[in-house]
Design a protein around this nucleic acid. Sequence first.
DNA 1: AAAAATAGGGATGGGACCATCCCTTTTTTG
DNA 2: CAAAAAAGGGATGGTCCCATCCCTATTTTT
Lengths: 209, 209
Amino acid sequence: MFRALVVEDQTLMRLALMNEVQASFEKCVVLGAETLNIAAVELQNSHFDLVVIDPGLPGFDPTSQGDRVAVVDRIIEASPSAIHIVVTGSDNRCEADGFRQIGAAAYLGKTGLAPGVFSDVLDDISTKGFSLRLSRAVMTKPDYRFSVLTPREHEAIDMMAHRAPGVKRKEIFSLMADRLAIDAGSAEKYYKQARAKLMRQGHTLPQGL
Amino acid sequence: MFRALVVEDQTLMRLALMNEVQASFEKCVVLGAETLNIAAVELQNSHFDLVVIDPGLPGFDPTSQGDRVAVVDRIIEASPSAIHIVVTGSDNRCEADGFRQIGAAAYLGKTGLAPGVFSDVLDDISTKGFSLRLSRAVMTKPDYRFSVLTPREHEAIDMMAHRAPGVKRKEIFSLMADRLAIDAGSAEKYYKQARAKLMRQGHTLPQGL
DNA sequence: AAAAATAGGGATGGGACCATCCCTTTTTTG
DNA sequence: CAAAAAAGGGATGGTCCCATCCCTATTTTT
């Protein structure tokens, strides 16, 4: 059984990271620790294959580089056989190098760390040994979330909303079919159903229909 | 149709906040903006009932109090009729007062901002006019996430794991029944099923069984 | 004009999860 | 000891979503 630990004080972020880890491993257990103390207890009591760390924890000065390194270093030493991934909101290349030298396998900025990126990071680690993803804002349009749509319908709407100009809808349906491992006809169906729901409720549709 | 906008650069946090907003309103649309520019465009084009803002956005100095106030102020002026909620990782009472004075209805620290808290915050706003929740780490045990368990089974395990000493399981089942609006027998069933699944897979059970 | 793309539906079976009710045996508690 | 609590399971109906296949107009492209 694959075991992972996420050390992050912000609850919503911790739960989201736990979700990402879980999505990357079919069968697994993921623990979440709000403080370094809780993490230390768990690291002492059991073995972990993967540890995700945000160095900005309660009780430490987030602006002190020494404190940040101390947190990560202590965790790495307490779980030498695990893969260690550092996730931070205030990321920079210099700090990334520092954490790499003390044994981290990845350094990720929170901005741009989207659902699914985690799997790519794990791929990077197993092929290149290290993964670096610095923060940068890349969105040009907003995200949408409609409470009337099912997850599948939402994916259809999202992908269509981000369609590049000149691309045919049929091509998006094929892309969607690939990504979700379903039939292109089904993808088309979800899109049409989603669109119909939004129209019925009098919504302003996102750009690109 | 209730319309909300979440302005936050960290993708996972933005999506989580959008989820929280959605969970608080049965029928609604929630938009997410990674940058102030995207937010400004949307605020200009349509009306919003609720805006959630993290003042630490790309392009601004997160340590500059002036920048943080400028971000929030600009958004409040662009949507004077909306409810404005400020969410930040580096929260303090002083900043809370400042944002309150320029019209924010709530000031929330990210640590301790857990699923469900948002509804309480909205209650605070409608009854007292303002909600203040500063960050503080309160957990003493880790979160668990088992990929084999369904959501209901997970809730059963979670609540049982946080059982106070001396409390009977039966009481937890009643509590769970109240919270989820189900039968106490069903709650008991979920707990037993969850426990059996974990035992079958040879898991180390969380404290408290 | 012919071909392709798009919009808009209806119907179907399967699977996962929810919620309930029922049962027996073992352990703990008063 | 007697009663309550707890462990451990079987069976059922309902709902929602997934995925597929089918159909017909209308619009756009070539």
